[in-house]
Design a protein around this nucleic acid. Structure first.
Length: 821
DNA sequence: ACGTGCGACTCAGAAACCTATTA
DNA sequence: TTAATAGGTTTCTGAGTCGCACG
């Protein structure tokens, strides 16, 4: 036995446990067993993997007829689970988990395995750093900027006349390329993409205040050193919420109105505003709130009689706030205008920072107002009073020579620092979890954009290594060493299922897990090779997935779950995120668990997009896009609560479709009347779609009659005034001119189109009810894939990126249609 | 040398808000 | 035409990840 071996066993491996634990001896048998087991399950391409995922997560297949879909929706229970609010979805855990009896074998300990990882500390990849240009980051000179601006403006004018959309992609390509080489900036200004020009055009149209929109094209020359984030930084500091002003409404205690000092009243308000929501019913929330409420009372108003929550009546306050809400809603335009203006003024003042002489938008310049902490899931501290933040506890980070913003009157800043290795402008410590809150630049800022870009480049880098990494972990699934085997298994899940890393957490936060922190009870096995995941992940969102895994992985889980392990024990007891990430660094510089999520999301998206049909309609293309997006969202388990009136909404759309279908049927009947021979050529004419019941027709006719009557009445009103004789319904019928075949055909086609569009909408909507597409679009999908797709399929970028996304991804929209992630 | 907690950043869904559409 | 509603966008802030300093 080698030395390295020895040290491993001495430190933590199973040797001593083996002596008194027969179960673990079995473990080792398995390890041995599987070695001979030629488990050649190669890594499956993601495109295929996901289908596995799909078959379990989403139960609706595209092929299903819409009608059927809707019906199955309301009636069948097969997918009813997904209709529930996220938190309430029940596991279907009845499948008893069986632990297979492993064949008994002799224990053998081998040496070779241990060394492999240790020595595999091969030289890191340097591709990333190689890619870095030597060109230092340059500040775009002001004069040039203004010049650019002028040019843009003239170009805009030209552009308006031309309105050429199709040229965008090509232009964009050339531009980026040229830009990379050029050293002087002159050419660059001409390289403005038409897309950008358009964007500006639009904003110009809206507001002139867009003058400062001189885009800093940081992506033209990459930064050398990214530990220094800025050289000069100016800003106005954060904006503080107004001090509390008492409203004088009294809550009741034991039925009696009670006087509270403003400090106490404010806290009472917080709870009053939560009544009627889930928060108000949450026992932990109540408990924590009341505890803090009493604390404030004791301090500010010791003689206050409030002692028990049950005796409190907050409803007068609640009513007051609903009233206020209604009042605000009922405000006149002018009043609203005034408020809007005030808001705008605050934004103008605090919403901008000067970073290296460039004007950049500040993201969250408002200090969080006091309130009750809304911890998600079963957060033990939910409901706790979050204190008001005063300038004294705020640290300002600003340039050395910049003017320090004035703190609110009568206050001082806690600290002023000049740290240009960080990107925050202000910071304070929050009292509930003792964590930090920061004021940052907005998502569209250069700083955020650059790190976003880096993130996706890192994920693309992983693409080059993923083959090797998969090979390696597949091998290591059979490793003799428990720690290695666990690491490989965890990585397998992270890669195939896009699980989060799963740091350890304290017990003063909600009990949620990620991959490394999975526990015994979160994973169940179902022979022959099905693994069922059921746990609460980030934000206490339930992750439920049944996955078929390779034999080896199945076997491994069996081993990891073997007694004496029991509920509450870690599944990967020899693993944590630090170990995992340290290992990953060896395969690729900067590689961590979360990169897999980005990589797999973007890659999946790219693959899914290939299903777009070239000559389909815009709606169909967009549906294809959304479908791809949805696949990613499903992969990443991005969920949202199903809206209460979801089924109502579906019914309404379905009703519309039926109406259109019936109308089309009526038109087709007229067509046949005009030309009965048509029936032969187009047998679909005069055929009533199924789903149109007698009741439907009846109610349709009734509605039509109502409409006609209404119109008649209106017409007659007029006629009365004009002194003409009044008409009847029959007159109206007669007055209808005979439709020509051409007109009918046109009507028919229009209706057909409308039906199709509505059906597309319906499918999209239904498939989307519990899936949140936004998160993956904003954070995981390389925007360049989307941009390239737009160019390739001739879809205007505005269709898929709204204004803020276009702003956030301005660095990305210049790719050409051949961009490959 | 290693575990731990701090610090800074990304990612997350809900809620508020704003705007276009429809009754 | 207006008010209600739906749908999209923005804001808000909580919840993760991960590197690193520190003891």
């Amino acid at each position: 036995m080698s030395n390295s071996d020895q040290s491993y066993f001495d430190s933590e491996e199973e040797i001593q446990e083996q002596e008194n634990n027969p179960e673990l001896i079995k473990t080792n048998e398995i390890v041995e067993d599987s070695d001979s087991d030629s488990d050649s399950e190669d890594d499956v391409p993601i495109s295929q993997r996901r289908t596995k995922l799909n078959s379990t997560t989403s139960s609706i297949s595209d092929a299903t007829l819409i009608n059927d879909k809707i019906n199955s929706h309301s009636s069948s229970s097969s997918d009813s689970d997904s209709d529930q609010p996220l938190s309430k979805r029940m596991p279907n855990n009845n499948s008893s988990q069986k632990i297979l009896d492993p064949k008994k074998r002799k224990i053998k300990k081998e040496s070779k395995t241990t060394a492999t990882n240790e020595s595999s500390d091969s030289e890191d990849d340097i591709a990333l750093s190689k890619r870095r240009k030597t060109t230092p980051l340059k500040k775009v000179k002001k004069e040039i900027k203004t010049e650019i601006k002028k040019e843009i403006e003239t170009e805009i004018k030209r552009e308006i006349k031309r309105e050429i959309k199709t040229e965008e992609p090509k232009k964009a390509t050339k531009r980026t390329r040229v830009k990379k080489e050029e050293d002087d900036e002159k050419p660059s200004k001409k390289k403005k993409t038409t897309a950008k020009v358009k964007e500006e055009k639009v904003s110009k149209k809206k507001k002139k205040e867009e003058e400062e929109d001189e885009v800093f094209r940081w992506w033209d020359n990459e930064k050398e050193d990214d530990s220094i984030k800025w050289t000069t930084l100016e800003h106005q500091g954060p904006y503080f919420p107004p001090e509390y002003v008492s409203h004088g409404i009294k809550m009741k205690y034991k039925g009696e109105p009670i006087d509270l000092v403003p400090e106490c009243e404010e806290v009472a308000n917080f709870y009053a505003q939560v009544i009627g929501t889930d928060w108000g019913e949450n026992p932990t929330f109540r408990k924590n709130f009341f505890k803090d409420f009493l604390k404030v009372i004791k301090k500010k108003q010791p003689n206050c009689p409030i002692k028990k929550f049950e005796d409190c009546d907050f409803t007068p306050l609640t009513e007051y706030f609903t009233e206020q809400k209604e009042k605000r809603k009922a405000m006149t335009k002018e009043e609203k205008e005034v408020i809007k203006k005030e808001k705008q003024e605050i934004e103008d003042k605090y919403g901008w920072a000067l970073l290296d002489e460039r004007k950049e938008k500040v993201g969250n310049f408002r200090i969080e107002p006091p309130g009750l902490f809304r911890g998600r899931g079963e957060h033990p501290k939910t409901g706790t009073l979050k204190y008001r933040v005063y300038p004294e506890s705020v640290t300002i980070n600003i340039g050395k020579n910049a003017k320090i913003p004035e703190p609110p009157e009568g206050h001082k800043w806690g600290k002023i620092i000049h740290d240009n290795t960080v990107t925050w402008l202000a910071m304070w410590k929050e009292n509930v979890n003792d964590s930090f809150k920061y004021v940052w630049l907005a998502a569209g800022s250069s700083l955020k954009g650059q790190s976003d870009f880096k993130k996706f480049e890192k994920a693309r880098e992983l693409k080059k290594h993923i083959g090797k990494i998969r090979e390696e972990y597949t091998l290591e699934l059979k490793d003799k060493l428990m720690a290695t085997r666990q690491r490989a298994t965890a990585l397998y899940f992270i890669d195939k299922l896009a699980l989060r890393a799963g740091n350890e957490k304290g017990d003063d936060v909600a009990d949620t897990v990620g991959c490394c922190s999975l526990r015994y009870e979160h994973v169940t096995l179902e022979p022959p090779n099905r693994v069922i995941f059921d746990f609460l992940g980030k934000d206490s969102i339930r992750y439920y997935n049944e996955v078929e895994v390779s034999k080896q992985v199945y076997k491994n889980i069996e081993i990891f779950k073997r007694a004496p392990k029991k509920e509450g024990d870690m599944l990967f007891d020899r693993l944590n995120t630090t170990i995992l990430n340290k290992y990953l660094q060896k395969s690729m510089k900067g590689l961590t668990a979360k990169v897999f999520r980005t990589y797999n999301a973007s890659y999946t998206f790219q693959e899914e997009l290939k299903k777009t049909v070239k000559n389909s309609t815009m709606n169909e293309k967009l549906l294809a896009y959304n479908r791809a997006n949805r696949q990613v969202a499903i992969l990443c388990n991005h969920q949202r609560a199903v809206s209460k009136n979801h089924s109502d909404q579906l019914k309404r759309i379905q009703d519309k479709i039926l109406t259109s279908k019936y109308q089309r049927y009526l038109v087709s009947k007229e067509m046949l009347e005009l030309d009965p021979t048509l029936k032969k050529k187009k047998p679909e004419l005069g055929r009533l779609s199924r789903g149109i019941t007698k009741e439907f027709i009846k109610s349709y006719e009734e509605k039509e009659l109502e409409k006609k009557k209404a119109k008649l009445e209106r017409d007659n009103e007029k006629r009365k005034i004009d002194g003409k004789e009044l008409l009847t319904l029959e007159d109206m019928e007669k007055a209808k001119r005979q439709p020509s075949m051409e007109r009918l055909q046109k009507q028919y086609d229009t209706l057909s189109k409308r039906i199709k569009a509505q059906q597309v909408l319906l499918i999209d909507k239904d498939e989307n009810k519990a899936t949140a597409l936004g998160t993956s679009k904003i954070n995981y999908i390389d925007p360049r894939i989307s941009a390239a797709w737009c160019y390739k399929y001739d879809v205007p970028i505005e269709k898929i990126f709204n204004k803020s996304l276009r702003n956030k991804f301005k660095w990305a929209v210049e790719v050409d249609e051949n961009f490959v992630f």
